[in-house]
Design a protein around this nucleic acid. Sequence first.
RNA 1: GACCCCUUCGUCUAGUGGCCUAGGACUCCAGGUUUUCAUCCUGGCAACACGGGUUCGAGUCCCGUAGGGGUCGCCA
Length: 433
Amino acid sequence: MKIITRFAPSPTGNVHIGNIRVAIYNWLFAKHNHGNFLLRIEDTDKDRSTDDAINNLFTTLQWLNLNYDEEPLYQSKQESKHVEVAEYLLSKGCAYKENKDNKGECIIFKMPNDDISFNDGIKGRLKKPIGDIDDFVLVRSNGKPVFHLANVVDDIEQKITHIIRGDDHIENTYKHIALYRALNADIPSFSHLPMIVNSQGKPFSKRDGDAYVSDFKKRGYLPQAFVNYLVLLGWSPGNDQEIMSIDEMINMFTIERCQSSPAQFDEKKMKWMNGEYLSKISNESFNKEAFKIITSLHSSASENLVKKVIALIRDRVKVFEDIEKLVNYFFVDNIEYDEKLIAKKIKKEGIKELFNYFTLEISKIDSIDEVSLKKIIDDYIKETGKSYGEVMIPLRIAVSGASGGPDLIGVLSTLGKPTIIERINDVKQKYLD
RNA sequence: GACCCCUUCGUCUAGUGGCCUAGGACUCCAGGUUUUCAUCCUGGCAACACGGGUUCGAGUCCCGUAGGGGUCGCCA
């Protein structure tokens, strides 16, 4: 039997990390079993479904390289089929018509007089006694089919063998199984994934603006890193391996190894993982992306300068969004100084002399290259007996405003003589006179 | 409220009755390397929710308690 899974989102907003993780697991499961992964767009709620959301869905799947087999099925196009099935159920005596709450006549499914149980791939045996689940609406009084009907009919039509979805669907599963039985269809295997929770341990809702896949894309996460992190949120291969290729994931992925308890999303770890992936991409692709970011931020910057800066920051970027802060002082005229830092490292004995010496020496040389820069600093150390830290930290703060950053000699030679002198003089004037 | 689900370091997890003095990773801290910063290396802190059983032996099985979560729509 060919294994078929599906991702069946309703396009009512941007794709959320919780949804996409479900998609990833379905995809991985299908690939692992040499099956098919189908996409079905459940757009029956016309009030809430939007084209933007559908586009966002396609963009997201494409970005993450989650390719699906066959053409996507739009549920709204299945409407007449769904109603037909409801009529069939009616004729079979499995459903009845009723005017509930005076809203007009709707078709209601009659829950059978049986206990219903199923073996969930993740939660184990789950059961409900007779009478625990109420009859439910199949077709609204306006003639539109309801989720349960549409979902089951389409799953049957698409021959879905394994349904992997969020555990908020557990209660629905009993209804769905009753429907499968009434329709005499093979019941697929169900697996219910726990949810992803936010840093407060609370469920991520679609309203959590910071959990959209598209936001992580915008901020410069790499798709492979994003998938790798997400796949580990609620699943593990059983050994200590964390960084893994898509092929390795496919090889190792099984439902049995999925966690049955909720997982907390931890951006620090995702960022670390992104850094691991980023350190492995080619200079060429890193430079291309970094160049794009910097030039869009500082449009008047010279190409040459941008390139130098990129080389300087290359290995301290964990996510592309880091670049903005990392490079700012290379491109703006006025940099800001942190008062605390100034008080701690600049307003001290000997700093003024250091600055005087440095600006004087630097003004004497023509070309400001790394060798001469290093010599100036070395000479000063020899003369005064100070440590490198005592010399380099104040200089760094004066020219960049920060206590940390790329190699100082590199920073200085990239900044250039006029800027260095100007910034040091500014600091002197502001804080040391 | 009813029904259901979940519970190992702060976080993600390994663990399927003896290999657990509970392992790995992220974070954090300390030391080393880097004459600055970052990287890197080494080390450290840190958990079986609680209470009862079952068993020669329990993180692992059973029951209960507590806490967290889900579902109870003519939404999906």
